[in-house]
Amino acid sequence: MTIAVTGATGQLGRLVIDALISRGAAPGEIVAAVRDTTKAAELAARGVQVREADYNRPETLTSAFAGVDRLLLISGNEVGKRLPQHTAVVSAAQAAGVGFLAYTSILRADTSTVGLAPEHKASEEVIASSGIPYAFLRNGWYTENYGASFGSALSTGAFVGSSGEGRIAAATRADYAEAAAAVLLSGEPGVYELGGDAFTMAELAAEVSRQTGTPVVYRDLPVAEYQAILVSAGLPEGYAGLLADTDLKIVDGELDTDSDDLPRLIGRPVTPLPDAVAALLKN
């Protein structure tokens, strides 16, 4: 059985390949489908097949998926361009005769009001209508999303945002990668709502403070003020607005879930927040 992972040199893709191998997949039966093959030398050295697969160049995709039995489509990172990119991948998978397709989506993609959700919902619809047996890996927030804020929080004494007391069922990339590997190896179709043990931003701040000995709090801001801070930090205004709006959706519970799909798939408890924070502080 041959398993392909798109975006295999990315942060999640590399972890999925690690998890596949640790769960018994032979490196030679794994295809790392990547935009830039020069960045995949380490994977090739491990015996993984490396093939060019550029979402923006559909002519590279069908050959990349030749002989592939199961495919993981890791969603693209270009917001606003993902639907045509994902559609090209699905079309190539159909042409190559792929027998199972897993897709990294977002929590409750079919009903979510988070600004990132519409592209995921539309992508899911393309996959569902393709005729290929599928699994939707509806990943919650990544704990690593907050790692970039640790430095400024420790220097200023505060995390800032607009999520109030909303709870975030975040998990680590490694947790989500293990879940993807488990689904790829089982080939079990389904819709999986994936998330960890929920926390508030105040609880995250308290954990960072506990581990570092530096007093850190969470300061809740009006959404316009938070967006302005993100812009001043160098984010494009549109993307800053999207992130600020996501914080408001956290208040409404959009990034929380009580599903046990993630620990059930990985066969262990999701990485606890203290462990996740400790790993981020080392980086």
Rank of each mutant, 00 (worst) to 15 (best):
M1P: 12
M1L: 06
I3K: 05
V5T: 09
A25L: 07
R35G: 10
A41F: 05
R46M: 14
D54G: 12
R57I: 13
A64V: 01
R70T: 11
R70N: 12
I74Y: 11
I74K: 12
V79W: 13
G80C: 03
G80N: 06
H86Y: 14
S91Y: 05
V98I: 06
L107F: 02
L107M: 01
T113A: 04
V114M: 12
L116T: 10
P118N: 00
E119P: 09
H120T: 15
A128K: 12
P133L: 02
N139V: 05
G140V: 06
Y142H: 12
T156H: 07
T156E: 15
G157C: 03
G157V: 02
G164Y: 04
G164R: 11
E165R: 08
Y176F: 14
A180N: 05
A181I: 04
A182I: 08
G187V: 06
L194K: 15
G196Y: 04
T200E: 12
M201V: 03
A202V: 14
L204Q: 04
A205K: 03
A206S: 11
E207P: 08
V216H: 01
P222H: 01
E225W: 06
A233F: 12
G238A: 13
L242F: 05
L243N: 07
L248Q: 06
V251W: 00
V251N: 00
D252E: 15
E254H: 01
E254G: 00
D261I: 10
L262M: 04
I266W: 08
D275C: 00
K282H: 12
N283C: 10
